[in-house]
């Protein structure tokens, strides 16, 4: 298998995530797009680990997984708070501090 197959797949996932973060309005969908980007990064870590026959790629992928889980927990709590205060989870409505 070529290393590039995995790297290009990961780049595609990452860029799809970038598109989702920029273009989505619902806060939960933005968090899902962030997860897409993290999934792409994880594929990179594991592919390079396999390429160099080193286990560090797998260890770092596990750390990324953990951080992603923490991020989703905090992120959804914030989304819940936004919904409770504004009665909407649309990020376009969060413009109180707009000049």
């Amino acid at each position: 298998m070529l290393l590039n197959e995995f790297l290009i797949l990961a780049a595609f996932l990452f860029c799809t995530g970038v598109y989702g973060v920029l273009a989505r309005k619902h806060a939960v969908l933005v968090l899902m797009s962030v997860e897409l980007m993290l999934a792409g990064v994880n594929i990179n870590f594991v592919a390079f680990g396999a390429f160099h026959n080193d286990r560090i790629g797998q260890v770092f992928a596990l750390f990324v997984l953990t951080i992603a889980a923490a991020e989703v927990g905090i992120g959804l709590a914030i989304v819940l708070l936004i919904y409770r205060n504004l009665h909407s989870a649309d990020l376009d409505d969060v413009d109180t501090m707009k000049g």
Partner: peptide, 13 residues
């Protein structure tokens, strides 16, 4: 993604 990891022999992750 998990299937790709198995394809790479990285079972645990």
């Amino acid at each position: 993604g998990a299937a790709q990891f198995i394809l790479l022999g990285q079972e645990f992750v």
